[in-house]
Design a protein around this nucleic acid. Structure first.
Lengths: 177, 177
DNA sequence: GTTTGCATGTAAACGGTTACATGATTGG
DNA sequence: CCAATCATGTAACCGTTTACATGCAAAC
């Protein structure tokens, strides 16, 4: 899913600035599934404007920088929905952590434990973040996605806690050689 | 995790050609966590050779194209382990499916159901692929990773099956308006 | 007084994918 | 006969990240 489509999607929920688009994603916990940086959002928004998929109005603010508030146009809405009707690209998961675990036997036991600790802590934080969100005032799609995220993180934590010993013990054996 | 590091990692398990590196990853089910295409593997291998992290020997074969078999050098092994001792980059998950579910209310009910069906089927296939693999003749790290994958796919399927109605019903309500 | 938040943008660099080129063999 | 497997490689293209530039205000 490219940044263009992501921007259009968010704008179907209401007007927003480029800055807000980024914040919205982070606050709502969707950054677990889709990402975008400012360096890609701003150019995407400019291109969408040129193409007529969004419109802009500039707002001057006191004590704050000027902002450009974007609205999706009917053409943009149509294009967005069309993009969801096309076959979706497959998921991509890249996990340096999992890759590293593959080679646990080459690493010092302390490093493996540290990696596990860090990864577990991150998962806990992400889960807490998802739980912190009130499920009220959300569409069913949003509740579904939040629930999905919670399920994945919970399963991840459960697995890591019950199985970490299996690679940590291997380490102990190695070290004792 | 860049392709260079991935190649080095695989070569710690034994010599391989660029072609085999790709196949190994797919067969072992690691493509769920790390990806690499030929277009990135071959240049990576050439660069690693220049840098002295791997060595090559060319093998002429009858009835098959020539192959270049790569071996990791001591320097490569050291560099690989060093890369796993540095702080790991964070996981990246990009799921066009999850993104689309966020906007289920904008789509025809049939499309939402079709997306769910397709995603569930894919998860089933990936899970079956992981289960098909004998856990014998694997390092503890490999068993750990395979188990982790199984857990995630199982949790995914469980969630989707028990919660899909929540977004499909919304659709029904919309359609009835 | 430094960091954080608000706010937009550009440019270079990067890493990677896609498509293409080549070509023999085996299996369906 | 066609598709798949084996096998390597290049080049164009793509989207994105990173770093930088700017600047004020509020919070700590």
């Amino acid at each position: 899913m490219d940044v263009r489509t992501i921007c259009l999607g968010i704008l179907t929920r209401g007007d927003a600035t480029g800055y807000e688009i980024k914040k919205l994603f982070e606050d709502d916990g969707y950054e677990h599934f889709v990402e975008a940086s400012f360096g890609s959002i701003y150019p995407a928004l400019n291109r969408l404007t040129e193409e007529g998929y969004v419109s802009v109005r500039e707002e001057s603010q006191e004590k704050r920088p000027d902002r450009k508030v974007y609205s999706i146009t009917p053409a943009g809405r149509t294009a967005f929905i069309a993009s969801l009707l096309k076959p979706l690209p497959e998921d991509r998961h890249r996990s340096p952590f999992v890759f590293a675990m593959l080679f646990a036997d080459l690493l010092p036991a302390s490093r493996v434990s540290a990696m596990l600790d860090a990864y577990i802590q991150q998962a806990e934080e992400k889960l807490a973040h998802l739980n912190a969100h009130d499920s009220a005032s959300k569409s069913s799609g949003e509740r579904f996605v939040t629930g999905f995220g919670r399920t994945i993180y919970a399963a991840t934590l459960e697995f890591l806690r019950t199985h970490r010993a299996e690679i940590e013990q291997e380490q102990a054996a190695q070290a004792a050689e």
